[in-house]
Nucleic acid binder design. Sequence first.
DNA 1: GTCTATAGACGGATAGAC
DNA 2: GTCTATCCGTCTATAGAC
Lengths: 215, 215
Amino acid sequence: MSPPATSPASQRTSRGRRPGAPDTRAEVLAAARASFAEKGFRGTTIRAVAASAGVDPALVHHYFGSKQRLFLAAMEFPIEPAVVIPSLVSGGPRDELGRRFVAFLVTLWDRPDVRPLVTGVVRSAATDAVAATMARRLLAEGPLLAISNALDVPDAALRAALASAQLMGLAMARYVIRIEPLASMSPEALAALAGPSIHRYLAGDLEPPKADGRG
Amino acid sequence: MSPPATSPASQRTSRGRRPGAPDTRAEVLAAARASFAEKGFRGTTIRAVAASAGVDPALVHHYFGSKQRLFLAAMEFPIEPAVVIPSLVSGGPRDELGRRFVAFLVTLWDRPDVRPLVTGVVRSAATDAVAATMARRLLAEGPLLAISNALDVPDAALRAALASAQLMGLAMARYVIRIEPLASMSPEALAALAGPSIHRYLAGDLEPPKADGRG
DNA sequence: GTCTATAGACGGATAGAC
DNA sequence: GTCTATCCGTCTATAGAC
């Protein structure tokens, strides 16, 4: 969790490479992303990442210190929930919030630069503890909790957890297990199908229609 | 898929160990299950399994031939969907099928002898191809397709896929990522929350209530 | 049926030369 | 900033003794 002492602020989003320092670091990060995305944390080797980036394995250690830190650096998400959530909540009719949110999220996940992050985190979260924490924060304790809080409904944490489970299942089915037709479907079509479930979890009545006198 | 020629039928559920042949094989299988459940396929080593079972690593190879076959043997599910599905479909009011199914499945998954299989398959499916196929068959192409077929609704495959995604998300959230309060919730409570979503996927109207003139 | 021994290969991490 | 060399650990799988 403590920031590494290696390079303080070389986070220019790859725009304008500074003289004297070629983008070797960025190439290593790209190679790492691709490997983590396909093989997860355990399946990724520093040697393979280095080979794919055309550099020496020792250089990867020199830049990132350890495989763990390389993972954290490679899987950093490019969006901030706090910026997006408000416009999502108030960006249309409230009873279509679920559909809107799924469409936004799947469109984001489908982006060529984001998709490796999603599959990398999901794949690694299945077996690696820190990746699991990462996944939890990226969904249940992040944007979804923000949404359910913004909606002013009871049981915000429970709702965020339920929606997270549904969304994680969608990500798993679409990108990892590749269940058809979910894997090849357009974000909008998927949103139309799964949106109502997300909506019910986030803003709907959590008691089933035929409640038998409890609560 | 072809059964190994090592030992034909030593599957007595550990009751009555036959003379001359101790239940070493069963102990190895139990150790393998536990390890696959916690660390997935890649994280499990034959050496660790052997040590945990108190035998020699070579013996594991002798019994199962390879790590792959050990995995297949250890993750074999004890239930047959074809037997359970009909009683689930016709075992109560149809509009509560989703709740009934989730309650049944989560109760099954919670069983001490089944839970390792669930986590083992899910964890391994994230990074291993054969485990992913296994997961697909255990859900979307197995019981869920059977249900959606039995319900006589259109788009059976799509419905099975959607329900699978939701259920896989629940399994991931409850057993792997451990998102609270989902992880500690009773099967019935979870069924009351997620059942309606499953019901809509399997038997409900897949078009959102406010359809805008399509179909 | 169970073990020893070993082949054959790959892994993360480090020290230090250039 | 980049690489060579290497330590020390890991693993699956096999051959063969007992």
